[in-house]
Simulated scan of single mutants.
Amino acid sequence: MISPETIKKLHELNCEDVARRLGLEVNMHQAHCFMHQDKRPSLAFKNNLWKCFACDKGGDAISLVEEKCNLSFVEACTWLCEQYHIYMPSTNLKNTKKRPKLRHRRTLVIDREGSRPDFDGDVASAIINLADLEAKGKEFLFTERKLSAQVVEKMKIKSVEDSTKMKEILMNTFDEERLIKCKVLKRDNNKIQLTINIPSLLIPYFDRTGKLVALQSRYLGTNENIPRFKMLCNSRKQLYNMVLLAKLQEGNKLYIMEGITDCLAMLSAGYPAVAIQSATTIPETELDKLSGFDLVMVHDNDKAGVSAFYHLHRSLLRYGCRLKCATIPALFKDYSAYYLYLKK
């Protein structure tokens, strides 16, 4: 198995130099794509990444060698190590076409406050069923972000803009202590208050079977001291839109977006997408579910976005998954901004 340190060194190689070593004629950071007939150069290079804007393929130095030479991951890494004199322990290449049996790293978690409460699906379902998509939610989703109404309805996104109304309905349905335990209500100076910041979107998470597994709020107000996102009802961090995976076939392209709004924009544009909340906090069990798909990440145009791509790329390698990179024009900070430009 190739060490993470070696993979990191290979990932950081300059793709333009690698392309020249592979025999490509590179001029002004561009070349003719070797994967299709290319009258004009559509293959672009930037630092340690490459991208073809005609066939929509891209990635790092490792994936470039894999695609150009039809090599396996291990074979491509071996070739690069030989080219750049990077030390790598000898590897038996006889069976590199087979996916290795991987051992998943186990993490010991010390819980000093006792076991974490379970997600309260009944309360979360009630919140979604009782809520509507109200004025401020519609303004944000449709007027500001220009998202598809069909996508928003399909994802069952609602909003809450009246804390008193929501609190009264919940307290008439569930025991007060239960609502406090799942952190939907809180006691503050002997008063019972709703913990959902007003106004907020309500974003449900479903697993592949359509079962509700998490609930998140997205604050729509202007108070900068209030966190924008909050997990509700003891929800754990999940991949968003996992129900989509049941509709895809093995080998289908699947876009991984940074954040819910980018994911909704990609879905509104007609592309299959899931979302991560953070590349560094995705549960190991969630990553394994992405195995078998043609994974492409559209990261934000900043250092944090590039770092998120690299971290997720390394994490997915442990599950036999290779993550490609799709870049957006540098003028736009994220896919949502690019989507708004395309909608003009």
Rank of each mutant, 00 (worst) to 15 (best):
S72M: 09
D262M: 09
H36I: 06
M171Y: 06
G292T: 13
M242S: 14
V18N: 13
N241E: 07
A275Q: 05
Y205L: 04
E286C: 08
I192N: 03
D132C: 02
E161R: 07
Q30S: 06
K253I: 02
P199K: 09
A149Y: 09
S148D: 08
S90Q: 15
V74Q: 05
R314F: 04
C263A: 05
L331W: 12
I169L: 06
L194C: 05
C321A: 05
E177D: 11
E144H: 14
G292P: 12
R228C: 08
M171E: 13
Y240F: 15
C263Y: 05
K191D: 14
R112I: 12
C81N: 08
F309N: 01
T281M: 01
E161P: 11
K167L: 13
C77A: 01
D188A: 04
M171R: 12
I260G: 00
L245G: 12
S63W: 05
E82Y: 08
L312Y: 02
A135L: 11
V160S: 04
K165I: 12
L342K: 05
K158P: 09
G221Q: 09
F229D: 15
D56F: 08
Q249D: 04
R21I: 12
N241A: 10
C15Y: 10
K289V: 10
S217G: 09
T96G: 09
F229P: 04
I260Y: 00
P283I: 13
I276C: 02
I110L: 14
I226P: 04
K68V: 08
S235P: 10
C77Y: 01
E161K: 11
L264Q: 04
L64S: 10
R145L: 12
P89N: 08
W79E: 11
D132H: 07
K303M: 12
K138H: 15
E177Q: 15
Y319L: 00
S268P: 11
P227K: 15
A131Y: 08
M242V: 05
K138C: 14
R208A: 14
C182H: 14
R218H: 11
K101W: 11
T164F: 09
K191M: 12
A19T: 11
